[in-house]
């Protein structure tokens, strides 16, 4: 057999599970499926075998657009010095209640 890479017949999907009402959907991993319906079924069987979820999202991995590590500074550093967005930046005397 040659070293030519074999590709799986089905595309990759990313799976997000909401553990219970009131929580965000959280990324839990990926799986292979031919279409979205199959991906949902597979996600249910693979990632919620132990009552872990109340809702599932699936999305084609190829459709995910993400920032790259090289964007880290341009994306996230600029918010690093805006300390005035934080409540603790402001000093209020202890005697003032409820603030």
């Amino acid at each position: 057999m040659s070293d030519e890479q074999i590709r799986h017949e089905w595309p990759l999907f990313e799976v997000f599970v909401r553990a219970k009402r009131g929580l965000n959907h959280v990324h839990v991993g990926s799986l292979r499926a031919a279409d979205h319906e199959m991906a949902l079924h597979h996600a249910r069987d693979l990632y919620t075998r132990r009552n872990e979820g109340v809702s599932i999202w699936v999305v084609r991995s190829a459709d995910v657009v993400s920032s790259g590590p090289e964007d880290k500074d341009a994306f996230f550093a600029p918010s690093g010095d805006k300390v005035y967005r934080h409540p603790t930046y402001y000093s209020i005397p202890d005697s003032v209640p409820h603030i």
Partner: peptide
């Protein structure tokens, strides 16, 4: 780093 913490 327990990404699954929220799941349980």
């Amino acid at each position: 780093d327990d990404a699954y913490g929220a799941l349980t």
